[in-house]
Design a binder for these strands. Structure first.
Lengths: 92, 92
DNA sequence: CATAATTACGTTCGTCGTAACCATA
DNA sequence: TATGGTTACGACGAACGTAATTATG
């Protein structure tokens, strides 16, 4: 479970579509599909229900959304904090 | 900035040594060194002060510790939650 | 049938270990 | 000079895109 995979997962979950997620991520449908497959394999859980093509999440998928959001938010905070530190040090 | 890299970083920071971190992570010194180098390159910041060999953190390194801890904790929570879901579903 | 997702294939990039190298206490 | 960290090198795995395939509405 890496942040790159979670970013992909969350984009698909939000767009409710592999193809729209791919477009938003500037990747191909194929790449997104492969990344999600690897994440599912790693977790041992399907995250999306492929039977209906409306991009609906499984139970595990729904559960993961919240954690994925938090993880990506914290990473963003970390980046901001580092940037802030750079600014402070530059003004020395 | 990926969780794999942060796990490596945090282990080095806690052990205050690349070699002890490597041992704990069941990797070689070299692998740990390379992973840290890539992370530093990605962030555009040195995280450890190599001049003194006591494994001391730079300002950026100290700042990152807190975020790295939180990120790894949240991932652990996510894994626990998924496991819990599996147990619940198994009892159906 | 048209659109969405998966699979196959070759390429690229990050991590790995081994081994050689550099540095410092 | 012994120990800790880095660099060079080749191997492996995960990501990529293209293109062919499958499946669903």
């Amino acid at each position: 479970m890496e942040l790159f995979q979670l970013e992909t997962f969350l984009t698909v979950a939000r767009e409710k579509s592999f193809s729209r997620a791919a477009s938003r991520l500037h990747r191909t449908q194929s790449a997104v599909s492969q990344t999600i497959s690897r994440l599912e394999e790693d977790l041992g859980e399907k995250l999306f229900d492929r039977s209906s093509r409306d991009g609906s999440l499984t139970d595990a998928g729904q559960l993961l959304v919240t954690y994925a959001e938090e993880l990506l938010n914290v990473r963003a905070e970390a980046r901001d904090a580092l940037q802030e530190l750079r600014c402070i040090k530059a003004s020395w």
